[in-house]
Amino acid sequence: MKRERVAAIVSRAKGLAAEIRWLLGLSLSAILLFPEGSAPADISQGAQIAATCASCHEPTGGGQAIPPIAALDEQAIVKAMLAFRASESPSLVMHAVALSLSDDELAATARYLADRANAGRQP
């Protein structure tokens, strides 16, 4: 019985050591991919679709004629896009964009933009 408990503790310790080595491995690989302290490339679906937004919306959020989107939260973006999808008015450009996105793509884009806004970065 005693021997079995010791064996279980050893086994758990080995498992822990393996997890630590695995985590160290992941950290090492991240260092190799993004050297010199640089940020990883965000090529998520949300990032890719949000790049289209930046063709018309000022990155600093200072746009007057075309409203800024940099500070909107996720729900506000989805709500606005669903309204644009439903009607050509007030913007046929946004109507076209909204129609081109599936619900999943819209959600991914809104989440990306909101995360960027929360992180204080630009879309």
Binding site: K14, A18, R21, G25, L28, S29, L32, L33
Partner: peptide
């Protein structure tokens, strides 16, 4: 023990290979 090492090594190697592919 050997099996675990290979498995962990494989995991680390796979992770390295996947994320360090550009290099």
């Amino acid at each position: 023990t050997d099996w675990t090492r290979r498995q962990i090594g494989g995991l680390i190697g796979g992770a390295l290979l996947a994320v360090a592919a550009p290099h």
